[in-house]
Design a protein around this nucleic acid. Structure first.
Length: 442
RNA sequence: CGGGCUGUAGUGUAACGGUAGCACGAGUCCUUUGGGAGGAUUUAGUUCCGGUCCGAAUCCGGACAGCCCGACCA
C-alpha cells in the first residue's frame, strides 16, 4: 500500500527572509528604461535585464510569475485543460508539414528581401539554431502538438481534449521594447484544443473565453475581449484580450458603453463612431495584448493527417483551436496599471507575498516570533530581518516591492503588545494585538 | 530592418582636447534607528578596434550594445 503523497510540482515556498535574498533594490531608475514596468521591476529586484527583451526573473519576480501560473493552472483545470511540456527546439519536419518552415525560415535563404505573408518584412520572427540547422527555437507549438495528437487520436471517443503548457517561447523581435511587454524570450501559456466538430470547437472557445476573463480578473487586470484579424491559416476572426494602457502597442476601437471592441488593424469602426451593438460611442484606445484565442479549424489536422473515425465509421479531420497567454506581459501590464510614486501595488493574488513583515531596530526577537507565528499559520510572509538597515530604508523597500499587507514590529508597537498593519496604497495603519494577527489574515 | 539619441566604478551622474571627480552602493570602525541617518576610512570606471594629435572620456571612422520613433509583431 502506497502512502498518499500530495502533489509537489507546483508548491510555492511560503516564506523568505530578506537577509537571505541576494537581490537588492535600487534608489535610481535604470538609465535606459523608460517604461514604468521595467523601471519598477528592475528597481525592486523582480527582474534583471540580460539583453534587450531578455530578462531573468529574480526570486521575487519568479514568485509573481508562479502566482500568475497558479491562477492559470486552476482555471485551465476548470475547463478540462491538462498540462504537459513540449521541447523548445522544434525540428524542421514539423514546420514543413504546414509550410511554415518555408514561410518563416526558407525565404531568408531564397531572398533576403522576400515578402512574407504579403508584407514587406525583411526579418525573421524566429531563431534558427546553429549548428542544428534543421531546428528553430519554438515560437508556438501547433505543429508539434498536432503531430503528437496524431499518434494518440483515432476515434471520436478520443475527443474532445485540450492540452496546454507553460513554456519559454522565442521570437526574434526586430525591436524589443517596453520592458516585459515585448520580449524576445518570454513565458507563454499555450493551450490547444481538439474537437470532433466545429460546433464543439465553438462551444469550447466560449469556455476558454470565460476562463480567460476569470484569469485576468483574478490577476487584477481588466481585459477587453477584442475581435482581431484572421490567423495565418484561418479566415475566421481571432480574438484578443486587451488591457487598456497608453503604453500598449495595440490600438483598439472600443464602445464606451458595452465595451464591444475591435482591433484597429481590421476594424471598420471609426473614432467617435457608433457601436454596432448598443449604439454607444466608439473610442480609440491603446492597449496591451495579454492573451489571444484562435479558431484553427482543420488547417493543422489536415497538414498532419490528424483524423478520427466517427460512430458510423467515417473518417474526419479533427477541428482545433489554440489559445495563448503571455505571462510576462501579464506581469508587465499589472505593474503599468497598479503602481504609485513609491512603487508597485500588487493585487493580492499575484503579490510575491501576502505579508511583508518589518522588524525595526531592537525587535529582532519579537520579529522572529511573529514571523514564526505567521508562517506556521500557512500565510506567505516576506520577513525584513535585516538589522543593518534603517527604518526608512525598510519602509521604502516595502513600498517598492508592493505586498498588500505591511506588518511593522517596533518598540512602539510592542509596548502595546501589537503589530502595526497597513495596506499598500492606503495611508492609515492600525495596531493589531499580537494575539490576533493570524486571525486577521485568515 | 530604416531613422534618431546614447555608451564613464555595482547604480546614477560630472569633467573646454590637458590630473577621470561626485553621490549612492559595497568593506572596516564609531555614532544612529518610524520614511533610503551621520562621521572617518577603503574599494571600484571611460564598451571594443582603429585614426587625428605632443596629448583623446572628449574629435573622426568602424564594430558592438542600449533606448526611442517607424516598419514588423501566428
Amino acid at each position: 500500500m502506497r502512502h498518499y503523497s500530495p502533489s509537489r510540482e507546483f508548491v510555492i515556498i511560503k516564506v523568505m527572509k530578506l537577509s537571505q535574498l541576494f537581490t537588492k533594490t535600487t534608489r535610481e531608475n535604470p538609465k535606459d528604461e523608460t517604461s514604468v514596468n521595467a523601471q519598477l521591476l528592475e528597481r525592486g529586484g523582480f527582474i534583471y535585464k540580460n539583453s534587450a527583451g531578455i530578462y531573468t526573473f529574480l526570486p521575487l519576480g519568479w514568485r509573481v510569475m508562479q502566482k500568475i501560473a497558479g491562477i492559470i493552472r486552476e482555471e485551465m483545470a476548470k475547463i478540462g485543460g491538462i498540462e504537459m511540456f513540449m521541447p523548445a527546439l522544434v525540428e524542421k519536419k514539423y514546420l514543413d508539414a504546414t509550410g511554415r518552415w518555408e514561410v518563416e525560415v526558407g525565404f531568408k535563404i531564397a531572398n533576403d528581401h522576400a515578402v512574407r505573408r504579403g508584407s514587406t518584412s525583411t526579418r525573421l520572427s524566429l531563431y534558427e539554431v546553429e549548428p542544428l540547422s534543421n531546428f528553430v527555437l519554438g515560437w508556438t507549438h501547433e505543429e508539434v502538438l498536432t503531430a503528437i495528437a496524431s499518434r494518440f487520436v483515432s476515434s471520436y471517443k478520443d475527443l474532445p481534449f485540450a492540452a496546454y503548457q507553460i513554456q519559454t517561447k522565442f521570437r526574434n523581435e526586430p525591436r524589443a521594447k517596453s520592458g516585459l511587454l515585448r520580449g524576445r524570450e518570454f513565458m507563454m501559456k499555450d493551450l490547444y484544443s481538439f474537437h470532433a466538430s466545429e460546433d464543439d470547437l465553438w462551444r469550447y472557445y466560449e469556455d476558454v473565453k470565460g476562463a480567460y476573463h476569470k484569469i485576468f480578473h483574478r490577476c487584477g487586470l481588466k481585459a477587453i475581449y477584442t475581435i482581431a484579424a484572421g490567423g495565418t491559416f484561418t479566415a475566421e476572426n481571432t480574438h484578443e484580450f486587451q488591457v487598456l494602457a497608453d503604453i500598449g502597442e495595440d490600438t483598439i476601437f472600443i464602445c464606451d458603453k458595452c465595451e464591444y471592441a475591435e482591433n484597429k488593424e481590421i476594424s471598420k469602426l471609426m473614432n467617435n463612431g457608433q457601436c454596432p451593438k448598443c449604439k454607444g460611442k466608439i473610442v480609440e484606445r491603446k492597449s496591451i495584448e495579454v492573451g489571444n484565442t484562435f479558431p484553427l479549424g482543420d488547417k493543422y489536422s489536415k497538414a498532419f493527417d490528424l483524423k478520427f473515425v466517427d460512430e458510423k465509421g467515417e473518417s474526419h479531420l479533427v477541428i482545433m483551436g489554440s489559445y495563448g497567454i503571455g505571462l510576462g506581459r501579464v506581469m508587465g501590464a499589472l505593474v503599468e496599471i497598479h503602481h504609485d510614486d513609491e512603487g508597485i501595488i500588487w493585487p493580492e493574488a499575484v503579490a510575491p507575498f501576502k505579508v511583508h513583515l518589518l522588524a525595526l531596530e531592537g525587535t529582532e526577537k519579537s520579529g522572529d516570533e511573529i514571523y514564526e507565528k505567521v508562517l506556521h499559520s500557512g500565510i506567505e510572509v516576506l520577513y525584513d530581518d535585516r538589522m543593518d538597515k534603517s527604518a526608512g530604508e525598510k519602509f521604502t523597500d516595502a513600498d517598492l516591492i508592493g505586498c498588500q499587507l505591511r506588518f511593522v514590529v517596533s518598540e512602539k508597537t510592542l509596548q502595546k503588545k501589537s503589530v502595526e498593519v497597513k495596506r499598500r496604497g492606503e495611508k492609515d495603519a492600525k495596531l493589531i494585538e499580537l494575539d490576533n494577527i493570524v486571525d486577521i489574515l485568515l
